[in-house]
Write a protein that binds this DNA or RNA. Structure first.
Length: 289
DNA sequence: CACTTGACCTGTCCGC
DNA sequence: TGCGGACAGGTCAAGT
């Protein structure tokens, strides 16, 4: 479930914790999901930490980068030389999840601390490659725009959605080649804010709907970042702390609970094979499909 | 060709 | 209580 806000929260933690550190060693027990040659980054220092879609990218000062995709259950935990973790300033107590543990699949030792990669379901992947080659990776080719970038606006959203006009809106929001960074949680929340039914065909959305959708996407993602992400099971930030976004969610995982706006009971359906939460009163379908 | 479904994994939750 | 099965969600491959 790490989506854009969760990955961005971890990225910000990494910027605080690991910039300038020298990598001393790498261990992994899951080489199938750890591609590239670790020697290419051992001995180098971290120069920059950035993000594209849901992928974290750590640039080293020797022209190589470490890419990390957390997929559903991936976690990164950093402890400094004294075993201390960074604090996210959360209103809830830290979990103090011990590391390493049985889902730890990679350990990065630095001159200033240790970074653990945990992944219960082993869907995540790590890749070491030349920084200059990143944009040529198959994963990055064709990736849609970053929804929070300045260049992205209502006009762009309309342009890219129009190409998919016969499809239901929610699966398109999840398509990383259309827009990058949105996952199941923020797709549902964005559609609620825009008052659009998740099964609405794009063709039947008017300019006002698309404008509201743009605003909904931006608001949902920014609110997610503000609350350090959404933790419904295993997501934690770099300090091992949960995000609290779901406390503020309007529909996600609120099946049977009252809509925050109209008190109608939130419903759960399956759209494009994904659990989908919406308010049947606030998000009425325009046409019967 | 465009779109939908299943596989990848494992921990958690629900019902019998 | 114990066990089995459904379910969770990101992405790619396979299927329709």
């Amino acid at each position: 479930m790490p989506e854009l806000p969760e990955v961005e929260t971890i990225r910000r933690g990494l910027v605080r914790a690991v910039i300038g550190l020298k990598l001393l060693s790498v261990e992994t027990d899951n080489p199938k999901k750890f591609l590239g040659v670790d020697k290419d980054i051992v001995g180098a220092r971290i120069k920059k930490v950035w993000r594209r879609a849901k992928v974290l990218i750590i640039d080293f000062d020797n022209g190589n980068s470490l890419l990390i995709h957390l997929k559903m259950t991936g976690q990164l935990i950093f402890e400094d030389k004294k075993g201390k973790r960074i604090k996210g300033g959360h209103p809830i107590p830290p979990l103090n999840l011990p590391v390493p543990n049985k889902s730890t699949h990679a350990i990065f030792k630095f001159d200033g601390g240790v970074m653990y990669f945990n992944d219960i379901r082993k869907f995540g992947w790590l890749l070491i490659t030349l920084t200059s080659e990143i944009s040529n990776l198959s994963f990055f080719v064709g990736l849609g725009p970053e929804p929070l970038e300045k260049e992205f606006n209502k006009k762009k959203l309309k342009e890219i959605l129009t190409l998919k006009k016969n499809l239901k809106i929610k699966p398109v929001l999840l398509d990383q080649k259309v827009l990058s960074g949105i996952g199941n949680i923020y797709a549902d929340e964005s559609l609620f804010l825009a008052k659009i039914h998740p099964e609405e065909r794009i063709v039947s959305l008017n300019d006002a709907d698309l404008g509201a959708l743009y605003d909904g996407i931006v608001t949902a993602l920014k609110t997610g970042i503000k609350h350090k992400g959404a933790s419904d099971s295993s997501y934690v930030d770099l300090g091992g702390e949960k995000g609290v976004f779901l406390t503020y969610a309007n529909v996600y995982h609120r099946t049977g609970m009252e809509c925050t706006y109209c008190k109608t009971k939130i419903e759960r359906i399956v759209v494009g094979g994904r659990g989908t939460h919406f308010c049947p009163n606030c998000q009425k379908k325009k046409h019967i499909c």
